[in-house]
Design a protein around this nucleic acid. Sequence first.
DNA 1: TTGTCTATACTTAGACA
DNA 2: TTGTCTAAGTATAGACA
Lengths: 224, 224
Amino acid sequence: MVLLKNLPKKTQGRKRIEIKKLENLNSKQVTFSKRRAGIFKKAAELSVLCGADVAVIVFSTAGKVFCYGHPSVDTILDWYCSGVTPAAVSDDTAGDKSPNRVPVAEFNKEYMEAIRELEEQKKRVAEVKEAAKMKKVVMGVVGGCGERFWWEDGEVEHYLIALEDVRKQVAARLHEMKILNGTLNPGALPPIPAVHRLCHLPMMTNGFSGHGGQFGGGYHGFGI
Amino acid sequence: MVLLKNLPKKTQGRKRIEIKKLENLNSKQVTFSKRRAGIFKKAAELSVLCGADVAVIVFSTAGKVFCYGHPSVDTILDWYCSGVTPAAVSDDTAGDKSPNRVPVAEFNKEYMEAIRELEEQKKRVAEVKEAAKMKKVVMGVVGGCGERFWWEDGEVEHYLIALEDVRKQVAARLHEMKILNGTLNPGALPPIPAVHRLCHLPMMTNGFSGHGGQFGGGYHGFGI
DNA sequence: TTGTCTATACTTAGACA
DNA sequence: TTGTCTAAGTATAGACA
């Protein structure tokens, strides 16, 4: 039975759209805002529900950065970049048969070729590395691509770590709060100083024993 | 009018859940899989619809890494870590009044304090930096946290860049394909070698002129 | 660990403020 | 650029394979 009352609808409601580049600038911006918030919320929910650690980084076409991370974007990036995952830490000399490698050998020929080339490059790097006599120093990158320096003592490292800790706390507190409710506008943030790429967590090379409580208080409770 | 036919429903349908830690291991794992896929799909859609560049990194509690990125996770991380965003590149000496800074001055006292401490740390680092006589060398980190070395010539850099290019292509091709359809299982991936944190894109310190076509062919078309 | 199948809960396009 | 309002398009909880 169909109601023919034909009462005027206030809106047409949501309309299906194709997933393709939005041409209208305004709707593109609006959609970007809404969906970005949606993704952050989903990420936060995944984090809470499953205890997962998540980082989401989004660049708008205008070049603005938006990000979300739990326990913090930097923490996730540190883990990711240093490959601290137990399941992922594999012996690089084991070759494709290692159970820890991605089982994509059959993906396609192109992939196989790339892998081969990758291994070759690795060998070359290893050679050069050895040629460099393995000279080791403590070092870091500060302030951006153009401002590299190095030192051999541990003093500077101390400052850098302290610096990072502070920044982490600030960034984490800022982003974590109320993301779940969509209340906080996860706005553009200042870029992470390159110093954060410093690999200063040698104790984390083979486990995750310290996942949760990096910042003492622990703002796992998304509340507030 | 209510239909009292009372025909047996096949399922109860989706049920509302609280956003809190799932205790049941199995449902936690299932939820993790489904929602993770959902987020990747959303990220891919955002990327296509709005031309945004996105990276999503997820660590399961088991320590597995799952990620999605467009144009690639590494590219996004490079941009993020080096702070190449036009809108985000600000004069660090400008202080909180700089229009490019996040307008969160009023966020709360804690934040203000943290910022203050941050600035102090920065000064200290700057001091030490100067004390180090700004000695500059080309350097990198290869293989992980424990294997640092440096060199002064540009030859090694060449290899490292080549290495990264190859890896980028492989990773990008692997993750981008069919994420939109949820067809490809965005499985756990090998960790990014620490070498990727090398800041080797000095030409990207002040603009985004080369966003899209990093890999020649350009796999913007998610199709296939 | 992933795919399928409902029935629902949740997200969001479009219009407007 | 964000919030509101609807109606409709989607994602997904739970059960099973």
